[in-house]
């Protein structure tokens, strides 16, 4: 530990000059830029779900609020929460379950804007529980089967368990293994698992193989809030005004994105390498301007049921 810090220290002192000379990433604090706008870094994942923030940036919604936005991509949430807590990023994108579990462990964070939601139609959502074997026709049939989940003890396996339970099955008989979204199709193709739970753009490409959908986030609860943008308690205390302006810009971006699906499909091709035709075929998530208290409470109760939370999350406090 100390050695780590020592080496860290070594690294910093040795690099202080060099890296700042490279100059690309050094001005990370939320200090006012020359134009008076607050420089803000947001940690996001390069997926369809974050299209509104890219769109809002392109539309100038953030500039209007005097927020100079830069978006930083990471593969998964592993680094985003610590980065926001430590102030490396001012805001981050995370699924709501991670935020609730974090709150229960006293991680100093708070959600400040909606991220994305499931659609209202369980059969046509941006997420899907897919099977290859034609003998499996409903969630209950997953008893004794292995299902791929992007992370364990999180939103995907909790949702699948809920679907199995609602279908009259015993969720404890379903086995989950952790496989990242991009690798799931390969696992099902090779019959290493019997079901996968994917989101767009993997959903469209997997369905094209003729795999059948037997569930989705929307089947858990229509318009289920899946993710949120969050910040640290520290930033909230120090720059409440900045947080308010970010939330306002985010709200405008979400509303705009929801009303302009074609522009969402277009902007997705700019920050990912998804092809235009694939983007056109995707089912987009719903982008509600506000957080969905009802579905958050639903999810929180499911987490209590699965033993991931000891008591229901204080959703009113965590999600404004």
């Amino acid at each position: 530990m100390l050695r780590t810090r020592f080496i860290a220290l070594l690294a910093v002192t040795a690099l202080a000059a060099t890296t700042s000379a490279c100059g690309s990433d050094d001005s990370s604090d939320a200090a006012p830029a020359t134009g008076g706008a607050d420089k803000v870094k947001v940690g996001v994942i390069p997926i369809v779900d974050v299209a509104p923030i890219y769109l809002g940036k392109a539309k100038g919604f953030f500039t209007k609020q005097n927020v100079d936005l830069s978006l930083e991509q990471a593969q998964g949430g592993a680094a985003i929460v610590p980065a926001v807590v430590s102030g490396q990023y001012q805001f981050g994108f995370s699924n709501v379950v991670s935020l609730m579990i974090g709150q229960s462990k006293n991680v100093p964070i708070k959600a400040v804007a909606n991220g994305n939601n499931a659609t209202a139609d369980a059969a046509k959502d941006f997420s899907g529980l897919l099977v290859k074997d034609s003998a499996i026709t409903r969630p209950k049939d997953l008893e004794g089967k292995t299902v791929a989940s992007n992370t364990l003890k999180n939103i995907v396996d909790t949702s699948v368990k809920d679907l199995v339970r609602k279908d009259g099955g015993d969720p404890s008989k379903v086995k989950f293994v952790e496989i990242a979204f991009p690798d799931m199709a390969a696992a099902l193709d090779a019959n290493r698992v019997q079901a996968i739970f994917v989101v767009e753009p993997f959903l469209t490409s997997a369905k094209a193989k003729g795999w059948k959908q037997i569930g989705s986030f929307a089947a858990v609860s229509p318009s289920l809030q899946v993710a949120a943008y969050f910040t640290s308690q520290q930033l909230l205390g120090e720059k409440a005004d900045l947080v308010k302006r970010f939330s306002a810009a985010m709200k405008e971006s979400l509303a705009y994105a929801d009303a302009h699906p074609d522009e969402v499909r277009q902007i997705v091709t700019t920050y990912t390498t998804i092809k235009a035709e694939a983007a056109a075929a995707m089912t987009l998530p719903k982008f509600a301007p506000d957080m969905d208290k009802t579905s958050l409470d639903t999810m929180s109760n499911l987490l209590v049921q699965e033993g991931l939370l000891a008591a229901p999350a204080d959703t009113a406090k965590l999600f404004q």
């Binding site: 990433d25 390069p46 991509q73 990471a74 980065a83 990242a180 753009p201």
Partner: peptide, 19 residues
């Protein structure tokens, strides 16, 4: 995993999530 430096790893992450 961390991102924020515009390196090859970040491009791999994007390519993975774009199939």
């Amino acid at each position: 995993l961390i991102g924020g430096t515009k390196g090859i790893g970040e491009r791999i992450a994007v390519a993975q999530s774009s199939i």
